[in-house]
């Protein structure tokens, strides 16, 4: 166990040293501190309408009506490529944003470990979501992924509603019980 841990630690150290050696000098060219000037940030995101157009049910129905397996395959392949392109653009934006943040704050005298950890958590959450959706689109295509996400959202809504109902049915009784206990004293 100890031996394995030491080997893992040393491999991690060697990998980090390799990154230091191969670090691109271009990364240092960016002007730090200009993150807040990116007021056009929202416009850099890929348009939602583009994804909606890519997942258009009319297009799918039209292709299905042709009854040509080859054409359907081509259509699905192209839509998968488009959806992956849309997703990767968001990934690029996130990476760029985080890199810019790191370059901007490294000079800050009031850098805080807790704030950096909070941001790292946000990045990890984003990466997990992004990775899951990207894998789903790669493996099952955008149409199935969308159906899966919608059903997931539907189930989440049902769970929320159920939770609210349970809380609603328990709370008045609980409050009455508390009132009775307070009155009896």
């Amino acid at each position: 166990m100890t031996f394995t841990l030491i080997v893992v630690l040393c491999i991690a150290l060697l990998l980090l040293l390799r990154v230091v050696l191969h670090r691109s000098t271009r990364e240092e060219d960016g002007v730090p501190g200009d993150i807040l000037n990116r007021s056009d940030y929202a416009r850099r995101l890929p348009d939602r309408a583009l994804l909606h157009q890519c997942l258009s049910p009319e297009d799918l129905e039209f292709i299905a009506a042709r009854r040509s397996p080859g054409l359907t395959q081509l259509f699905l392949r192209e839509r998968r490529r488009l959806a992956l392109g849309w997703l990767r653009q968001i990934g690029r934006e996130a990476r760029g944003l985080y890199r810019q943040h790191l370059r901007s704050v490294r000079d800050a005298a009031d850098l805080r470990l807790s704030a950096e950890a909070k941001l790292l958590l946000a990045v990890v959450l984003f990466s997990i979501t992004y990775g899951a959706i990207l894998t789903a689109v790669e493996c099952y295509g955008p149409f199935r992924t969308r159906r899966f996400l919608l059903s997931l959202q539907g189930m989440a809504n049902i769970l929320i509603e159920l939770g609210n109902r349970i809380a609603g049915s328990i709370a008045p009784a609980g409050l009455a019980g508390l009132d009775a206990a307070a009155g009896g004293r």
Partner: peptide, 8 residues
């Protein structure tokens, strides 16, 4: 030197 709080 950036305003760390706002950037973060």
């Amino acid at each position: 030197e950036c305003a760390y709080e706002s950037v973060s």
